[in-house]
Amino acid sequence: MSYSVLEDNELLNRVRLSDAKAFDEIYLRYWRKLYALAFYHLKDSEAAEDIVQEIFTSLWAARERSDIKYLYTYLATATKYAVFHHFAQPSNSTASLEELLSLPVEQPSAESRLLQDEINREINRLPEKCRLVFHYSREEGLGNKNISEKLNISTKAVEKHITRALRQLRVQLKHMVWFL
């Protein structure tokens, strides 16, 4: 039988039954797309490869208990989570976290909503002034000078609030557990 003609849901059903050939087909079908997605955000070939490997390893490990409905959306979202986790590591830059917060999601999925809910929860835990500065900066796109004028604080204070918000988000979100 040629697995390449099977639909994603048929392949997933076979993977749940530990069919390695069905898993191989999923891997062949989506590896390049997921690698391209990870590389686009990371700009690091080795890290992108590692992330994609982790995604597929996790998919296989959780095959019997997975409840995936839309395979590519799920894999792409898992890749974005892994990229987020990569950026949340203390050794990675704040600028990378900023880029991650603006990642587009092609289709709203349960996974992407969970991630967004977690980000929103962490943003809501920020001190009031810090949260307000972060909101003006990230959600309304205001520059530091405009924010400082609007809130009657110095641009240095705006920068400190943004730095604090990003640091707190990075620290808190790195503890998230990525289940596939």
Rank of each mutant, 00 (worst) to 15 (best):
L42M: 05
A38N: 00
L59H: 10
K69W: 05
V83Y: 00
L101P: 01
T94M: 09
S154V: 00
L132I: 07
A157H: 00
K80A: 10
E98N: 05
K33S: 05
T79G: 05
F39C: 01
S137E: 08
I153Y: 00
L114R: 14
E46I: 07
L114K: 13
Y74W: 14
Y74G: 00
L17A: 13
E128G: 08
A82Q: 13
F179R: 10
N124L: 13
R32L: 13
R131Y: 14
S4P: 09
A20T: 06
P104H: 03
Y3S: 03
R29T: 05
L11K: 04
N146K: 08
S154E: 01
P108C: 03
H41V: 01
R113M: 10
K69R: 12
T73A: 07
K69I: 12
T155H: 03
Y81R: 14
D19G: 04
L151F: 00
V83M: 06
Q53I: 05
L126G: 10
I26E: 01
A36R: 12
V83D: 06
V158P: 00
R113K: 07
K33P: 02
L115G: 00
Y70C: 07
S137R: 15
Y3W: 09
V133F: 02
S154H: 03
R63H: 15
R138V: 04
I55R: 03
S45P: 02
P127T: 12
N152Y: 06
R63W: 12
F56I: 08
D67W: 06
G141V: 14
S91W: 13
R14P: 01
L101Q: 02
L42N: 00
R16T: 14
R113E: 10
M1A: 11
Q107G: 05
R14Y: 05
P104R: 10
G141E: 03
L6C: 08
S148A: 15
N92C: 08
E54L: 09
R65V: 10
S4V: 13
R164M: 07
E118A: 13
A48E: 03
Y74E: 10
I68G: 04
I153W: 05
R121Q: 15
A47W: 02
A22Q: 09
V171L: 08
L126Y: 06
I55W: 02
R138M: 14
T163S: 13
D117M: 12
N124S: 14
Y30A: 04
L173R: 01
C130V: 09
Y74H: 15
P104K: 12
K21L: 12
A76G: 04
H175K: 11
K145V: 03
K80P: 00
F23A: 04
H86L: 10
Y70A: 08
